[in-house]
């Protein structure tokens, strides 16, 4: 049994595609049946269209990559017009990622996305490192609490708050959004980072800085999931450099009820399928009937 629950959302398995790495599912659905995934999290949408950051937007770094997309998206109206219908036809769960500069904007977004029927849940992107405004909320306990509270009032759907690693104490933020009514937290988003070209003496990214993802961030992400798990009761969705079933199981042992696969999609689009299969094999090998038995099962060394 690999079914897990996130709020009121029942996922056939704990593996989702992470926001910003999977579009709205359309491209990868041509390569394999994305209904095999536990859920997909859409590219973040904002109220108004955003043109995004100037190129280059991508640079490879040791065991990772930086991206600086800048939340490029065509805005809410276009989402409702062109994306909502195809998303509704998917059998997998659809988590729509949203970002906004004010609580008011987020309320409009959540309201209209939920009434479209295209979303099974909302992921509140409080943590994009590449834009001003929407990226700030998850760095401040009170701002995070206020925003989640406002959105919570506007939406009945399962509400997931996506947290930034760029904080002193992630447990404190996780606790604040739990108190404010979030059904789950997903963590972590990318780390603010840079790459430099010494020949041109310029930053490689057009936006100078970007967000670091990939295997390089996994150990830090694991620790943050573990910290959050010890602070909150709501489910945690683990994110950060998950490339294989082993990585995913490490996150589940540290307290994640589910995981999101991001950067791995670029290298191996079928990584999530292999991860689901690998988790099932692992359960069998360990004589476990249910993946839920693994959540937070990490056995700390005796002192």
């Amino acid at each position: 049994m690999v079914e897990v629950k996130i709020g009121r959302l029942r996922l056939a398995n704990p593996v989702m595609a992470a926001s910003g790495t999977f579009g709205y599912g359309e491209e990868y659905n041509r390569l394999f049946d994305i209904n095999s995934l536990g859920a997909i999290v859409t590219k973040t949408i904002t109220l108004k269209p955003r043109i995004g950051n100037p190129p280059p937007r991508i640079v490879e770094t040791p065991s990772g990559m930086l991206n600086s997309i800048g939340l490029e998206n065509k805005g809410l109206d276009d989402f409702l017009k062109t994306r909502a219908q195809p998303l509704k036809r998917l059998k997998t769960k659809v988590i729509v990622s949203i970002a906004g500069e004010t609580a008011q904007e987020l309320k409009i977004l959540t309201g209209r996305v939920s009434s479209s029927g295209a979303a099974d849940a909302i992921e509140l992107n409080l943590s994009c490192p590449n834009v001003k405004g929407p990226g700030m909320a998850a760095r401040d306990v009170e701002a995070a609490r206020k925003i989640v509270k406002a959105v919570r009032k506007a939406v009945k759907l399962t509400l997931i708050a996506k947290l930034s690693p760029n904080v002193t104490d992630i447990a404190e933020i996780a606790k604040a959004v739990e108190d404010a009514g979030a059904d789950a937290v997903s963590l972590i988003n990318t780390f603010p980072a840079m790459a430099v070209d010494i020949n041109t003496q310029r930053p490689i990214l057009g936006n100078a800085t970007g967000g670091l993802s990939g295997p390089a961030i996994k150990p830090i992400a694991l620790k943050m999931v573990w910290d959050a798990y010890n602070a909150v009761k709501i489910p945690i969705i683990g994110i950060g450099g998950i490339m294989s079933a082993q990585d995913a199981i490490e996150f589940i042992l540290c307290g994640a009820s589910a995981v999101q696969v991001g950067t791995a999609n670029f290298i191996n689009p079928k990584a999530s399928l292999e991860i689901i299969e690998g988790i099932e094999k692992y359960l069998k090998k360990k004589n476990l009937k249910d993946v839920n038995e693994l959540i937070g099962r990490l056995r700390i060394w005796p002192r």
Partner: peptide
Amino acid sequence: EERMACGVGACLGCPVKVKAGEYKMVCK
């Protein structure tokens, strides 16, 4: 040519500016 991650149009990592003022993706 542009630096690419996904190559399929999912990550929006390889933009080129077009005269309409928006970005198009080199890969897709």
